[in-house]
Amino acid sequence: MILRAQESVLVVVDVQERLLPAIHESVSVVRHTGMLLKAAAALSVPVLVTEQYPRGLGPTVEAVRADLPPGTPVIEKITFGCTGEPAFNAAIQEVQRPQIVLCGTEAHVCVMQTALGLRQQGHEVYLVADAVSSRTPANHAAALERMRAAGVTIVTTEMVLFEWMERAGTPVFKVVSALVK
């Protein structure tokens, strides 16, 4: 399936202050998440953010918060998979978009359990491989392999951006394509 901006919602999972320093290639995760957020804003793609036990792990990192569209829901949770949190399920149902684009941390825990839960609910799930990570590369790789086997489509940030844009020569193309330069 081709990603369409008008059919997508971007979900940013647990990119939090006290967790991020332990994440392998965290700078890349934050950079690619920022690109996705800016493109989502330019293309009117709704965004949801989750925070795993923010009292312990802190809020979403400032670099990500700065790129959130105004009014973006930030959903606190204690379940690892976002689909275990009723507020998350209500927010997904409210946006009524079949394509869920996932990024965040940790790939093998909260991101994977969220992807599997969303697949179980019947959603098309797209995992942005360069915008997710874990504390170890082995956990990241195993999570991608397991999600792929469960029917999650593995994509990259640039794949998402260019599929969402659909064409060149538009005002939004200039804005979004500048993100990859």
Rank of each mutant, 00 (worst) to 15 (best):
R18Q: 11
R18H: 13
R18V: 01
L19V: 10
I23T: 08
H24I: 07
H24A: 12
E25F: 07
E25P: 00
S26K: 14
S26V: 01
V27E: 15
V27S: 15
S28I: 10
V29T: 01
V30E: 00
H32G: 03
G34Y: 05
M35D: 00
M35C: 09
M35P: 00
K38G: 06
K38W: 05
A39D: 04
A42D: 04
L43T: 01
S44T: 12
V45N: 09
V45R: 08
P46D: 07
P46C: 08
P46N: 07
V47A: 09
L48S: 06
P54G: 09
G56Q: 04
G58S: 10
P59W: 02
V61E: 01
V61M: 01
V61W: 05
E62A: 13
V64G: 03
R65W: 03
R65M: 07
A66P: 02
D67H: 14
P69N: 08
P69H: 09
P69W: 08
P70A: 08
G71N: 10
T72M: 11
T72A: 12
T72D: 07
P73K: 11
V74E: 06
V74R: 12
V74L: 12
E76D: 14
I78R: 13
T79Y: 02
F80M: 02
G81Q: 03
C82H: 07
T83C: 15
E85S: 06
E85I: 00
P86H: 12
F88C: 07
F88Y: 13
F88M: 12
N89A: 14
N89D: 13
N89P: 00
A90V: 11
Q93A: 15
Q93C: 01
Q93E: 15
V95A: 09
V95Y: 13
V95Q: 09
Q96F: 10
Q96M: 10
Q96P: 01
R97P: 11
P98T: 02
P98C: 10
Q99M: 11
I100R: 13
L102A: 03
L102M: 09
C103K: 05
C103S: 09
G104T: 06
G104F: 10
G104N: 04
T105I: 15
A107D: 06
H108V: 11
H108L: 09
V109F: 00
C110A: 10
C110Q: 00
V111E: 08
V111K: 08
V111D: 05
V111S: 04
M112S: 12
M112K: 15
M112R: 15
M112A: 13
Q113A: 03
A115M: 01
A115C: 08
L116Y: 01
G117E: 04
R119Q: 07
Q121V: 06
Q121G: 13
H123N: 13
H123I: 00
V125S: 04
V125P: 04
Y126R: 04
Y126N: 03
Y126S: 00
A129G: 02
A129R: 13
A129P: 04
D130F: 03
V132K: 03
S134W: 08
S134K: 11
S134N: 10
R135Q: 14
N139F: 14
H140M: 05
A141Y: 04
A141V: 12
